[in-house]
Structure formats: C-alpha cells, structure tokens
Nucleic acid binder design. Structure first.
Length: 576
RNA sequence: GUCUCGGUGGCCUAAUGGAUAAGGCAGCAGUUUCCGGAGCUGCUGAUACGGGUUCGAUUCCUGUCCGAGACGCCA
C-alpha cells in the first residue's frame, strides 16, 4: 500500500481535481513535526474564492479519522498536513524491502526501449587523466540507473581514434619511436613522441605537412599507416582497460570516430537533398540562423571531414540500428554549443531522431594553480589518483586493525582498501550537481569524513557487524508484519521514510540525469542510521519480538544502501 | 564584443514559486568500563547588489558587478 497514493485519492474525492495534478502538488514538509505529507492549498484559493487557511481548515474537518493508517490531519496556515500511523508506515516500508525479489527501485517503465549512453570516450594515445574520470563515472552511473529502470541500456565508448593527431603520431613514431618502450608503457611512449613532435614542429613546419599527408594516407586506406594506427589503438585500449576494470566499468561497443568515417558521404548526401548545405569561405556548412546558432561546418575547405560530420553520422547510424528511445551524450559542458549545432542540423534536415538526443554536460576538473594540458604533461593520471586513495585507505585499515585487534588477513585488507579507496573517488564525482566545476584538491578527494563513500561504507559495515553478532539470517525475513508494528520511534520512522523514498530518488535521478540524487538519499539514510544505533542498543533489546523487528529494520537499511551504491558503481564492504 | 552557465555562513555544496533556507568541511564544547570513535551530541554562522512579477522569490523577468566556459575549418 502506498500512503501517498491513498492521500491523493482522498484529496481527489474532496476537491474534484485530477490525481496527476494533486500528485504534483502533494509535498513532504520540511520538518517532520509538521507532518508526513502536506498539501498546500494556495493554488486553490483563486478557483474556490477562499483564503488558503480556510480551505485547509475545511478539508481537515472532513478528515476520515476512522482509517487505521492515518493518524490525523491538521490545518496549519494554508497547509493541510497529514500524519500517517507510524507503526503501520514503518512495518510496510521495511517489509516491502525485505520481501522484494527484484533489485530495489527496479521498474518495467523502460521495457523494450533502447537507451544509448555515450561516455568516457578517451582519445587514443593520450593519458587517461582525472578529466576523463567525470564522464566515465557519471556515464557509468547513468547506464546503471537506466538499466535498473528496465531500459535496454547500451554503453557506447566513442573513442577519439581519428583525426590529424594520428598523422602526427605516425610521423613522430617513424622519427623517434622506441619499440621496446611502446610495448612496455604504450601511453607514456606515445605521449612522449607526441610532445616531442610539437616541440620539433615549432622549428620545422614541414612536420605538420607530413602529418597531414600521413592522415590523408590513413583515411585513404594505406596499409602501412593503417597498421601503425591499429597498433596505437590496440595498445591504448589495453591500457585504458586496466582503469576501467578498477572502476568496474565496461562497454557494449567501442565505436570510435573512425567507425563513422565511411558513413559521412551519406550525411552529405542527405544535407544536399534537403538543400541546406551551403558553401562558405570554401567550406561546406549548414547555416543555423533560425536557431540563433553559428553555422555548423560539415566539410572543411580541403574536403575532409570534421567531428561534427562524424557526430551526425553517428546519430543516423544509431537510430537505424537501435531506434533509440534516447541517445545520451555524457560530454563536458564546453561542448554544449557543438551538440546544439549537431542536433539543430538534424532537426533542420527533418531527422526526427534529433528530438531524442540529449547532451548531458558536466563541469570541468580544474586545478587551482596550473592548467590541465596534455601537451605540457601537466596532468594527474586517474590511475595515480586511484592508487593514492587506495594506499591511504590501506594505511587507515591497518591502523584500525591493530587498534581493534580485528585480525583481518592481508588479502582482505587489500581487497577492502581497493573498494573504499576507489569508492571515495567515485563518490566525489557524483555527490553534487554534474554541471558544477570541480576544483581538484588532493585533500578534498581523499577526505574520508562526512559526506563521503567511506562514511556510508562504514555505516554499512557497522550495521552488518550487528547483524552478524545477532546471528541474523539474511535470507529469511525473520520478523513478521505484526512484529514490525512494534517499531514506532522517531529514529525508526525517519529510517523508514528514507528507505521508502529510495525508488522515487532513483527515478528522479534518471529523469534529471543526476546520480547525486541517489547518492544524497543513501547518505541521508546512512546518517540517520548512525544516529539511531548510537543511541539505541539493538543487540540488547529486551523484548525478543522488538529485537527481531529492529534487526529486520537494519537489514532493510543495508539492502537500500547497497542497492543505491550499486547504481553509482561503488561497492560496500562487510568489514573495514 | 556576442552567447551560455554560475554567485547561498570562513570553505564546498543542496533546496517542482511555498512553512523556521538543508548537509558536509574547518572552528569551539562534549562524548569510549556499554552492538567498531572513518562515529555520535551540542554551539557559532549564509541567499552578490538594485529594480520588477506574485498572497509568497534562493528559485521567474530585468539591470549592475564578479567568476568560468564557448564563439567556422581541433575534438
């Protein structure tokens, strides 16, 4: 039973307003003392020609107080406040979670619908730095969320594996490449010659010309150039995979930019047919004045393609292949204009799929002192950040292990440190609205207090520890509904509300492409639980029925935390 | 110059146009013979500035100031 739905039904009866409308207006009061649900009557004032407080008072008088699940209805100011029966609410919320056989918040709303999530998309031959962490972590979370909602979510890694930069690499490798170094540390070696190329090119402009020629040959299908390019690509992918594995990230397709190379003539043909392709300063462009946007270049003046044309080809290809419900681009905010242009070109060409494409932007990872730049080599490698975090975690675990004489094995400590260290990093990228810039700071990234993954993981581990000590059986829901009705304290009620609100948080997160909404829900739950067990002794509960009920509540808390973290790519641990 | 975002306590962040603006960090004061102190309790402290719309504005419109980003042959 859904208390919210019942209240909406009742309100619909009383006011004659449609349920959808009421559902939108019904809210949760800012303070629990005010009630559990609240209906603001201000909007009714005009049509009912009454002051809001009067409307609220009138509705309160009609309250059906004979219901067992409803405690009381109060009119306060212009609000109609509903108080549900706590024991009833708590028992149903806990029971629902424990008896669910599907993952929490799972739904079938996405049944049979394809959603493409394009994310990570690193450039081949360039280091995987902290800037790539954002798209990788955010994209992965969005994939998990849509997957949970029943969509057929497709993970797409749009590799940066094409363009003049590869001409540069080919030329550089022929001049200065070190085969042994390439095998040993491919990214470092490729970066080395790439930087070297730019240094040398300052004095020898003919290098740039050679690079363009090499890329032209690559595009034309010259065997030697293709072999080298493939080699660079394979080695880079191998290196990226170690980071992906650590983050628990994987993909369904690695269709990089090169994949769309031969599909671009069709794009040009389409735009010509629609007569929207015009020549400007030697280049082929689509004018977008009616959208208040600058022109979008489709073919450069030398006739070669550009990233916009590849993105256009990708949309057409994806829609033909998957008839996507939504095509999501998890790409940084600086490229917002580019995507508006691409989507607008498609719309102008009458491609209906354009409306189902969405750019999910995110902020920049900035450094307080220096600028992030691949060429200068001033980057923080994601691998190093992860390792630093794991190392710090391991140190803390070691210290605690001695302090508590917990006797964890070396292997277990390492395993746990990996999950917590990685989780801490993932959490910092997902805890706030995605469009915020992140100013990189080691201190903040490695702060394990307060709002952080380790805080939540710690809470989870504590709860699991209590369940273990109680000899609680996870597989069976020990307490029945009658026993769960014994739970009615403020803290228990607060926990039940947070557990109950979890599915709503998931769907809101999906709708807004904002995983932080889930992260916050889970963190609030962890905080509420910390507060609870710090002042209520679970194991020492005298009444055996109440004790069982409390253990069941703990289990529901654990299940919800675990379920929420699963959606973000963070793992929980039994001990830490 | 044009456009797009953003400006919330010392710092980082949250709040479908609604009630006393929420959380974390830092600071201060407590807290461990009792389920694990990466914890818990308490205190201090904020909507850049001026107009406007509204019964009601952190939220919407407008102007100013400040910051970031984007602005045709890179991605």
């Amino acid at each position: 039973m859904d208390f919210r739905v019942r209240i909406i039904e009742w309100l619909a009866e009383q006011t004659g307003l449609p349920q959808e409308q009421l559902a939108e207006w019904l809210e949760v009061p800012p303070q629990p003392e005010l009630g559990d649900y609240a209906f603001p009557c201000f909007r009714l004032a005009k049509t009912m020609r009454q002051a809001p407080p009067k409307i609220a008072a009138g509705l309160a008088e009609k309250a059906p107080l004979d219901l067992d699940w409803l405690e009381k209805i109060e009119a306060v100011g212009g609000y109609l406040n509903f108080f549900v029966n706590r024991a009833s609410f708590i028992s149903r919320a806990v029971s629902a979670v424990l008896h669910a056989d599907a993952p929490l918040a799972q739904s079938d709303e996405g049944q049979g619908k394809n959603v493409i999530v394009e994310y990570s998309s690193p450039n081949i031959a360039k280091p995987f730095h902290v800037g790539h962490a954002f798209t990788t972590i955010l994209g992965h979370a969005l994939y998990k969320i849509y997957d949970r909602l029943g969509y057929n979510a497709i993970r797409m890694n749009h590799l940066g594996d094409y363009g003049t930069q590869f001409g540069k690499l080919i030329v550089a490798y022929r001049l200065w490449g070190d085969e042994a170094a390439l095998v040993k540390e491919p990214i470092k070696e490729l970066l080395r010659i790439y930087v070297l190329f730019h240094d040398e090119a300052k004095d020898k402009p003919e290098l740039e010309q050679q690079a363009r020629e090499a890329f032209r040959k690559l595009e034309a299908g010259a065997a030697e150039e293709i072999d080298l390019w493939k080699r660079f690509k394979d080695l880079s992918l191998k290196a990226f995979n170690t980071v992906y594995e650590r983050l628990g990230v994987s993909f369904d397709y690695f269709y990089g930019e090169s994949y769309y190379s031969d599909k671009i003539p069709d794009v040009v043909k389409l735009l010509r047919e629609k007569q929207i392709l015009t020549e400007s300063e030697g280049a082929q462009v689509v004018m977008l004045d009616e959208y208040d946007l600058p022109p979008c270049i489709i073919l450069k003046s030398d006739g070669t393609t550009i990233y916009a044309s590849r993105d256009l080809a990708a949309v057409l290809f994806r829609d033909q292949t998957w008839s996507f419900e939504r095509n999501i681009y998890v790409v940084g905010m600086p490229q917002a204009l580019h995507f508006r242009q691409v989507f607008s070109v498609l719309e102008k060409a009458g491609v209906e799929a354009a409306k189902r494409c969405v750019h999910v932007g995110f902020g920049l990872v900035k450094f307080p002192d220096r600028k992030l730049s691949t060429r200068s080599g001033h980057v923080v490698f994601l691998e190093d950040l992860l390792q630093e975090s794991v190392d710090k975690t391991l140190e803390i675990i070691r210290k605690n292990d001695q302090l508590r004489q917990a006797d964890m094995s070396e292997a277990e400590m390492r395993q746990v440190a990996e999950k917590i260290g990685i989780g801490a990093i993932v959490y910092t990228f997902l805890k706030n609205g995605r469009e915020r810039d992140i100013v990189f700071s080691w201190d903040e990234m490695l702060d394990f207090d307060g709002d952080s993954a380790p805080y939540v993981q710690y809470t989870y581990a504590r709860a699991r520890s209590i369940l273990r000590k109680a000899g609680h059986d996870d597989t069976a829901a020990d307490a029945g509904l009658a026993e769960l009705m014994l739970l009615d304290s403020d803290d228990e009620f607060a926990l039940a509300k947070l557990i109950d609100g979890f599915p709503a948080a998931v769907s809101k997160a999906a709708y807004a492409y904002e995983p932080y909404m889930i992260v916050r829900q889970v963190t609030s739950l962890a905080r509420a639980f910390n507060k609870y067990y710090n002042q209520t002794s679970i194991l020492k509960t005298e009444d055996p029925a109440l004790r069982r009920a409390r253990l069941a509540l703990l289990q529901a808390v654990c299940k919800t935390i675990n379920s929420g973290f699963e959606l973000t790519g963070i793992e929980v641990v039994e001990r830490m």
